[in-house]
Structures are given as C-alpha cells and as structure tokens.
Design a protein around this nucleic acid. Structure first.
Lengths: 200, 200
DNA sequence: TTCATAAGTTCTCATTAAGTTCTCATATAA
DNA sequence: TTATATGAGAACTTAATGAGAACTTATGAA
C-alpha cells in the first residue's frame, strides 16, 4: 500500500522526529520536545505541525492528552471505532473497554483462527467462508459452538451434548442437517468459538 | 517487540516500576510501595495511576485484592490461522495471503468499526451486537450493505436501491421490516460493510 | 469463627504542566 | 499581489499530578 504524502519539509521533519523519538524511548514526545527536536522554540508551531500530520493521516491524536499522539503503524486494533448503529439515536462513543475486548480476541495466546466450510452452523450465524476464533479447551459447554475432531481426521463445528458416559451427540445449527451420536473415543474436543470474522 | 503507548510520564513510570518490582520480588507491589517507588506519598494517587494503566490495557487488576495487579504480555495483531473446517477433509494450511487479508481488515486507514444494534439485517448474517467494519464511501453498490445517515441524525444499516434521480429505497434484510423510500436529500451514504466481527 | 488492621477505593482540593488557539511577523513562490 | 510555509510567543483551556481524608474490603492472628 503506497503512501501519497504531500508533507512539507518541516512536517516531514516533525514526523521523522516523532518516529525516531518513539523508537528510542518507547513513548511519544511532548510538544515542547518536538519543538526542540525540529529546531524551533515554539510549542504552538509544533502543535500546528502535529495537527497537519493528523490531517494528512500520518499520525493519530488524542486531543488534549499529554503525549497523546501515535504513529499509524502501531495503532491499536479498532482505534477508530466510531460508534454504535442506533435506531433513532445519535452516534455514541465507544469505550476503551470495548476496544480492549476486541484486541484481546486477536492477541490472546491460546486462540487461533479457522475458516469455515459448509453451512451446518448457519442458524448460529456462522456462514460458509467465515473465520471463527477458537479458544483451546478439552472441556465442552452446552451453549458454545465447539471444534471437534472426529476419528482423528475430520474437523467440524457443532454444539455438543452428553448422552451418557460413553456417547456424545453433535448438534448442527441447521435444520437441513441431522444430529449425530458418537462414542466418546471417536471424538476429540479441540476448543470452542469465542469470536467470528467475516470479510465481504 | 517494543511497546508503544500514549501513557503519560507518570503512568509510564508507574508501569516501569511494577514491571521492575515483579521481576525483582516475584510478586506485584502494594499501592504504598508503588507510591514510594515513583516518588510520591499518596497511595490514592498511586491507585489512580494503576487504574489508568488498567484502562490502557497495560495491566490486569483484581479489585480490592491485595497485590491484585498483574502485567499483560501484549502482542501485535496476529492470527494463528490453523486450518479450515472441512466436511470430511483434513486440516489445510492457511496461506499468508489469507492472513494478510484479515490483518488488512483491521489496519486499513480508511475503515472504522461500528457496533450493530437491532435486527434489521439479520438475513444478511448481521446480528444485534456484531461489529461491522465500514469502508468510507459516498457511492453505493447494489450488493453491499451500507451505512446510511438519515436526516443527519439516524444511522442505519441497509441495502440501497436507486428509484429515480430524486428517490432512494432502503432495504432491510429481515422480512419483519419494511423497505422505505426517501428523497435523496434526506440521505447521506457513509460507507459500506467490508467486514464483520462477533464476540461470543 | 471473630475482629483488628492493613490494604484498596473514592473523594476533594490545590498546583503545575501540557495542549490549544491566537496574533503578528518574515520569507518565498506562483 | 496573493497564497503558503515558516517561526515566536502570549493567552487561554484542559490534563496531569500530588496530598490526604474518609471510606470499604481483604487478610491473617487469636
């Protein structure tokens, strides 16, 4: 993805300084530090450059926050979560809590992604081609969708129900598919779905 | 991987102290120890910093517990795509291409996320509570789900169809909801859905 | 178990520091 | 001329910081 920048000489210098500073110190500079770094004395001028860089899409800024800038490459996931689609309401701000929740989904060590093939879980809103995020688990839960390995060979997404100590029922979420009962020794539970991603 | 953050000076100092302390003593510090460690006397202030770090996603906290904090090892966005859920097939390897496709979805500059409220698009697989990733656009496409601002006030997700030069039809994907026709001047197209995320 | 007390939590108040906005000024290119 | 890029710095707004009182909750000794 190529960058088309129309930065002026000093804007570029400002951007370079911010990148250099953040790499060196692991944090972003204050306006006065930026001013000094690009060879001027006015923090008001530094602020003007920083605003230009934001407008040019080179950095992100958190208004009024101290050290409240960050370069685009390193921005956290979903920083630009603008709001909630409401029926009749204005756009709401999204909390940091929700941002972290999303970030956790994709950075959690114990989870991995699988691409779904087939439509056996369509009534659970899991469609062919979707990605599901799986959290590893050997246990199973009645309300969760699980990844199940059958006969050490076939992988499938199903709800699970225990019949007795020797048999387990796998339940699809699609009326066109049938429930199946397996002896426990043919089944290996891999994990359950904690997230889902669809790309259009 | 180095961490980039927009922590304030003292927040950063607090975080550094917590990391240093835990490495040295194998446990996490008390608030009074944190206060002393960062050169202040008020445990109330130390507590404020600790809460900020939690909000920033730098640490985890267990409310009211003594030494009830712990650091988080954060990682960059990376999906360990293990394979494909196949009906009757073995697990396939996932290509870098697909991984890049996912990463792009969340790092693309021009897109942002919205949380869906309501069930008007349920037949398109977009449920209440899902996140949709929106790519900004003023144009519209017949097959895409769009974000539409009505009367500069209400935001909604719908399919769009042009009636004539003066009227536009908004089409929900739920038979319980009706199509509606609006004069073009009441409608502002914000973008269309390029991705979708669900958290279980 | 009770219960003292140590630790965590929530406040207010005050001060300092940083971000923001603004005017004025100079240089340079179209 | 006119517009743009640059710089200084004053004046203002807001965030960050620090102290400490008063409160709630957790913890461990008796």
């Amino acid at each position: 993805m190529k960058e088309y920048s129309t930065l002026t000489t000093k804007e570029q210098k400002t951007y370079d300084f911010i990148v250099r500073y953040s790499k060196k110190y692991g944090k972003y500079p204050l306006l006065t530090e930026i001013a000094k770094g690009i060879g001027i004395t006015s923090k008001g001028v530094a602020h003007r450059y920083v605003k230009s860089l934001e407008k040019a899409g080179k950095i992100l800024r958190f208004s009024n926050k101290h050290r409240g800038i960050s370069t685009i490459e390193k921005r956290p996931l979903f920083l630009k979560s603008l709001g909630r689609i409401a029926a009749g309401g204005p756009i709401e701000a999204i909390s940091d809590q929700q941002r972290i929740e999303l970030e956790y989904l994709f950075t959690n060590k114990k989870s991995y992604a699988l691409k779904v093939k087939g439509e056996s879980m369509i009534d659970a809103g899991i469609n062919d081609g979707d990605w599901v995020i799986i959290e590893e688990s050997k246990k199973f839960y009645k309300s969760k969708v699980h990844v199940i390995l059958v006969d050490n060979q076939d992988v499938t997404l199903k709800y699970i129900e225990k019949i007795n100590s020797e048999e387990i029922k796998l339940i699809p979420a699609n009326k066109a598919y049938k429930e199946k009962i397996y002896p426990v020794e043919r089944i290996s539970i891999q994990g359950y779905v904690v997230g889902q991603v669809r790309i259009y």
